[in-house]
Simulated scan of single mutants.
Amino acid sequence: MRRVRAVGDLVLSLFPGIGLLDMAFEEAGFCVVRGPDLLWGGDVRTFAPPAGRFDGVIGGPPCQAFSAMKRLNPRAGEKHGNMIPEFERVVAAAGPTWFLMENVEGAPLPDVLGYRVHAQMLRHHWVGGETSRLRRFSFGTRDGRALRVETLALCRPDPLPAVLAGGNGRAVPVAIGGSGKRKKTLTSGAVVRGGPNPGARASFADMLAGQDLPVGFLSEAPFSESGKKRMIGNGVPLAMGRAVAAAVRRAIGQSAEVAA
């Protein structure tokens, strides 16, 4: 029996978290295999992928060490340090046709021997989302082809603040570089969020909507609400992931491979 598959279909996901970027790639027809993650008791530092099995590698190493929010807490990111070298190590060992790394603007570009990287900055509302979230996507191939994400000709001029990770009702979440100290308004005493997006803390429903996720997402997951907020805030908005996955599809082409 003969089998036909699209080239580039089998993808390894590193630092998958709750898999928001993975969801977008799966919707685009990729088969995503999730690698180890501290969230689930795994550790990428002890992971050795099989060589020559994966067509692509995707992932977003922790960004706290390079985030603009680090100015609020210079010690942010010290626990795990710079994990981009682990991403680079796994890519080099797996030897895929292409790789995609998501991170903040201040993070270094991935550097893997034999690959050339094309990077593109992208805001969530440029691709139909509701927020101003900004991320850089670094696309690596051996021939240096470009990643061209299609953006809207007209996007909303007043995007909502980016969804941020939070926890336990803290005004400036430790998870994103805050002190964890509670801050109050002078009038109502309501908890507000510090940093670049002040105001009342977002509800869980608002965070789901801001990341393009349906009501009920994670409803069966055995995590506290603060834990769910942290995981959702650390993920790639679904609209952004979809636009990037479609761009990868275009970049790698739709040629087919026939196997016996």
Rank of each mutant, 00 (worst) to 15 (best):
P61F: 11
A24C: 10
I84P: 05
G8W: 02
A48P: 00
A6N: 13
R71N: 10
I84S: 03
A92V: 07
G106P: 07
K79G: 00
E88M: 01
A28M: 09
R3C: 11
L20Y: 12
F54A: 13
D111K: 12
L109M: 15
L14D: 12
L100E: 06
H118A: 13
P74L: 08
C31M: 14
L109F: 11
V91R: 00
L10K: 13
G95N: 00
V90Y: 01
E102T: 09
P74V: 08
D9T: 15
A119D: 11
E26H: 04
L39D: 13
E27K: 07
G77P: 07
H118T: 12
S67F: 06
F47T: 03
F47N: 01
F99S: 01
P36C: 06
R45N: 14
V44W: 07
V90R: 00
V104D: 05
Y115P: 02
L39E: 08
A107I: 07
A24R: 01
G29S: 11
G19V: 04
L14K: 03
F30K: 00
G106I: 03
A51L: 04
P74H: 08
R34H: 12
F30P: 00
P108G: 07
P96G: 02
P108M: 08
M69Q: 08
L12H: 06
L38Q: 07
D37S: 11
W40A: 13
L21A: 15
M69C: 10
D43F: 09
L14S: 09
Q64P: 08
D22Y: 05
G41N: 10
P61V: 10
A76W: 03
P85K: 01
E86W: 14
L14E: 13
L113M: 09
E86Q: 14
V57S: 02
Q64W: 03
R71S: 15
H118M: 02
A93C: 05
V7E: 10
A68C: 11
P74C: 07
E27M: 04
F99N: 01
R3N: 11
G77K: 00
V91L: 03
D22F: 04
R3I: 15
D111C: 12
N73Y: 05
G81H: 10
C63T: 08
N82L: 03
G42T: 07
P110W: 06
R45P: 12
R5K: 11
G77D: 10
Q64R: 01
E78T: 14
A24I: 11
C63Y: 09
I58A: 02
F66E: 06
F87D: 13
A65V: 15
Y115T: 10
R45E: 15
G60V: 08
V112M: 00
R45V: 09
V112F: 03
P61Y: 09
V44N: 04
A92D: 10
R116K: 14
N103W: 05
G52I: 10
R3V: 14
G29T: 11
A93M: 12
G114V: 11
N82F: 03
F15K: 04
D37L: 02
N82W: 01
